[in-house]
């Protein structure tokens, strides 16, 4: 595991408040980055020869929302989205995880996806991964060259991997439920 106390400290010294924190207890350690500093941090992690995370494995989004009111009363977090970047280095054979926390909707308007700068300029593979995330989880990647749905049809409404997503009753005459 590359992400340790020294690694986080090095990043904090370099990027200051753009590094929000880190988790070194989970089985995979991760670093939390501010949305505004994401591209800068990613570019550094890719281009710094001693880290060289030149391979983007996956971008995933975890939706933290509890739809069951009984359980919602017990949870300790506020509803939010976590965008998770799994990275690795082909040269050093190391892996790392970055996280960005986002509000579930932009300006608290339901249906309006939150914004995050695109990293497709850093790793080209982010192009398709961000399209998938936009399609299924609803994150608006600013600066993406071609942000449109990839797995669902282009006229699909809603983001299926959100916890409060409702299956449509019909789609072009096909009954849903």
């Amino acid at each position: 595991m590359v992400i340790d106390q020294a690694f986080v400290q090095k990043l904090e010294e370099r990027f200051g408040e753009k590094i929000i924190g880190a988790n070194l207890e989970n089985v995979d350690h991760w670093i939390e980055v501010a949305p505004g500093g994401l591209v800068e941090v990613c570019r550094y992690l890719k281009e710094e020869p001693s880290i060289a995370w030149n391979y983007l494995n996956a971008i995933s989004v975890v939706d933290y929302l509890e739809t069951d009111p009984k359980k919602a009363a017990k949870v300790t977090w506020k509803p939010h989205l976590e965008v998770v970047y799994h990275l690795s280095s082909i040269q050093h054979k190391t892996t790392g995880v970055l996280k960005v926390l986002l509000p579930r909707w932009k300006d608290n308007v339901e249906g309006q996806p939150p914004e995050l700068p695109s990293v497709s300029g850093v790793w080209t593979t982010a192009d398709w991964h961000e399209r998938e995330v936009y399609d299924l989880s609803g994150v608006d990647f600013r600066g993406h060259p071609n942000l449109r749905r990839i797995l669902c049809p282009e006229d699909w409404v809603g983001f299926p991997l959100r916890k409060d997503y409702q299956m449509p009753l019909e789609y072009h005459g096909i009954r849903g439920r």
Binding site: N54, Y55, L56, N57, I90, W123, T124, T125, H129
Partner: peptide, 9 residues
Amino acid sequence: SAEMAIDYG
């Protein structure tokens, strides 16, 4: 190319 293969994941 190798660079492209890595860049495209």
